[in-house]
């Protein structure tokens, strides 16, 4: 068992390959990475460099071929599918490029989804939903459906959904890729607040250098290896 002081992410000698037809594509071949708790990391790199694959591996929704992946003190490579589901519910918040909200549910119902996996009662769930929507500045939009909201508002709902169960690690896949500059800045500011004030560890995949500047540091993936760049706070 890892100690609570261990890094939020610890990857040792990770290998990941894909088979496409008769061709085998190596994404990672002996990758190593450590991300401390409370970090805000921007992962950049050209298309196909493995950014999203790494994010999926950290979130326990994809499997490595060999190597060790430890996230939030849990060895993901040793967990079964059902164990991974339970682990994700309590430790990970996902934020996607296209928000991935359920169009038939209201903002509040979307945000409540992760809480259905907990033992919380209805009243407590409702309080948490209101708090999470308040954090992202949408307390007045609880009964709105996604189609009634702008892209920026939808992404804020998605952020509220990601933080409502108070996970330690937020994984963001191009969270501003579908937004204009001003809206993107608003979203990134929210992420920055979540990192700075609430202590959330954030790993964000982005192509956008302006977005990366909101992170504490930037990791550039190239041919399956990292080149690290420190960023001014």
């Amino acid at each position: 068992m890892s100690s609570p002081n261990s890094p939020m992410v610890g990857i040792v000698d990770l290998c990941k390959r894909y088979t496409k037809g008769k061709e085998t594509i190596t994404i990672f071949n002996g990758l190593n990475l450590a991300i401390p708790r409370g970090d805000f990391v921007a992962m950049m790199g050209p298309s196909g460099s493995g950014k999203t694959t790494l994010l999926n591996l950290l979130g326990g929704i994809d499997r490595s071929d060999t190597g060790e992946i430890e996230v939030a003190s849990e060895r993901l490579d040793r967990l079964s599918e059902s164990e991974l589901s339970r682990w994700r519910a309590s430790h990970i918040g996902f934020i996607f490029q296209f928000y991935n909200l359920m169009p038939m549910l209201t903002a509040a119902q979307n945000v409540e989804l992760p809480l259905l996996l907990t033992r919380l009662g209805r009243k407590e769930r409702r309080q948490r939903v209101e708090t999470a929507l308040g954090v992202v500045g949408l307390a007045d939009r609880v009964k709105h459906y996604p189609k009634e909201m702008s892209g920026g508002q939808q992404q804020r709902v998605a952020i509220a959904r990601a933080i409502v169960s108070d996970p330690a690690l937020l994984l963001c896949d191009e969270p501003t890729g579908d937004l204009d500059r001003d809206t993107a800045d608003e979203i990134l500011s929210i992420l920055q607040v979540l990192n700075r004030d609430l202590g959330k560890t954030i790993v964000m995949v982005t192509h956008d250098p302006a977005a990366a500047r909101y992170a504490k540091r930037s990791l550039h993936l190239d041919k399956g290896n990292f080149i690290e760049k420190e960023l001014a706070a």
């Binding site: 929704i61 059902s82 589901s85 519910a89 990970i92 996902f94 991935n100 989804l113 992760p114 996996l117």
Partner: peptide, 14 residues
Amino acid sequence: ATEIATLRAIGFSG
């Protein structure tokens, strides 16, 4: 498919 995958990513069981 996307909705199902999103729910699974959030932690919903298969």
